[in-house]
Amino acid sequence: MYAPHVRRHALALLDSGISQTDVSRQTGINRTTLREWSQDRSLADKYLGTDLCPRCEPVPRPPTPAHAYSYLLGLYLGDGCLSPAGDPRKKIWRLRIACDDKWPGLQRECADAIAAVRPDHKVGRVQAVGCTMICGQWKHWPCVFPQHGPGKKHERLIALEPWQQVIVEEHSERFVRGLMHSDGSRVLNRIPKKDGRGFHAYPRYLFANTSRDIVGLFTDALDRLGIPWKAHVKRQPSVLSQRAISISRKDAVARMDTFVGPKY
């Protein structure tokens, strides 16, 4: 039986138009097998499996689909964590994303993203106080989320790997959406009028996180998208100071509305 990465490479070569003879020479797969795969693709696909880690293959590749991973990465950096699951000898990890119970649509979107990145496996839900943990188990979550480590995120370096940076740059809107769904909000800002009669009201987006690195990833994505922002420190009693990012210009809010919008 040929290894999944060998099968995937052979199929890519066949799809590119290379002859079965040349593909056989490059991969070591006999021409009869290649001919059978060309005639019935399912014969090759059925052994590829879904439990394989794209980062652990001889030639590592990024998780797919990229747009779902970019969104899930934003959720993970904001409200996600990895922890050992079950028998430690099996080395299985549990991904947990905390989703507020006020936003059932966000919970569904989070579950869909986990299912897309980790197909054909169940996505679990665990009720907690005021929120639901959307969960998925896999041996290789630390491979696709290398930001995992001991301690709290704001107490250690959070930086993207080069392959993650490529995905985030290509799918910046999905990355921003994930971060906003975890640690952001769309609010109506009210400013008293100078004459004291009523208020000026306008919508704005706010994002706040105690990790300077995560805030930096957020603002870098906004810069790539050409969305202006302002920073200030959000201080709360008995809570660590948070760096807050405000997006309040009318055109910037309108741009954010096209791919983020209010939580639902």
Score class of each variant (00 low, 15 high):
1 M>F: 06
7 R>S: 08
9 H>V: 08
10 A>L: 03
10 A>G: 09
12 A>T: 14
14 L>I: 11
16 S>A: 14
16 S>I: 12
16 S>F: 11
20 Q>N: 07
20 Q>K: 14
20 Q>T: 13
21 T>Q: 09
25 R>K: 15
28 G>P: 04
34 L>A: 04
35 R>Q: 13
37 W>A: 00
37 W>F: 08
39 Q>K: 15
39 Q>L: 14
42 S>I: 04
43 L>H: 06
44 A>G: 07
45 D>L: 15
51 D>H: 12
52 L>E: 11
52 L>V: 15
54 P>I: 15
55 R>W: 02
56 C>A: 15
62 P>R: 14
64 T>W: 07
64 T>C: 07
66 A>C: 06
67 H>I: 12
68 A>Y: 04
72 L>I: 08
72 L>H: 02
73 L>H: 02
74 G>Q: 01
75 L>G: 00
76 Y>S: 00
77 L>Y: 11
78 G>F: 12
78 G>W: 13
79 D>V: 13
84 P>I: 11
87 D>Q: 04
88 P>V: 03
90 K>Q: 13
96 R>T: 13
99 C>G: 05
100 D>E: 08
100 D>M: 11
101 D>S: 12
101 D>H: 07
104 P>Y: 09
104 P>K: 11
105 G>A: 14
106 L>D: 06
107 Q>Y: 09
110 C>S: 05
110 C>H: 02
112 D>I: 05
116 A>H: 10
118 R>D: 06
119 P>G: 08
121 H>Q: 10
125 R>K: 14
125 R>A: 13
126 V>E: 05
128 A>S: 09
129 V>C: 08
130 G>D: 05
131 C>N: 05
133 M>F: 15
134 I>R: 00
136 G>E: 02
137 Q>F: 06
139 K>H: 08
141 W>E: 04
141 W>N: 02
144 V>N: 00
145 F>E: 00
146 P>M: 03
148 H>Y: 11
148 H>N: 10
150 P>R: 15
151 G>Q: 06
151 G>A: 01
155 E>G: 02
157 L>P: 02
159 A>Y: 03
159 A>C: 06
159 A>I: 09
164 Q>M: 14
168 V>M: 05
169 E>K: 10
169 E>W: 10
171 H>T: 07
172 S>V: 10
178 G>N: 00
178 G>L: 00
181 H>D: 14
187 V>Q: 10
190 R>W: 07
190 R>Q: 11
192 P>W: 09
193 K>L: 12
193 K>F: 04
194 K>L: 12
197 R>N: 12
197 R>V: 13
199 F>K: 12
200 H>N: 10
201 A>T: 15
203 P>Q: 00
204 R>H: 04
206 L>C: 04
206 L>I: 12
207 F>M: 00
207 F>K: 00
208 A>N: 01
208 A>D: 01
209 N>Y: 00
211 S>D: 03
213 D>Y: 07
215 V>T: 07
218 F>K: 02
220 D>A: 15
225 L>T: 01
227 I>K: 03
233 V>L: 03
234 K>D: 03
234 K>I: 04
236 Q>M: 07
238 S>N: 11
242 Q>I: 01
246 S>L: 12
251 D>N: 06
253 V>A: 01
262 P>R: 04
264 Y>L: 12
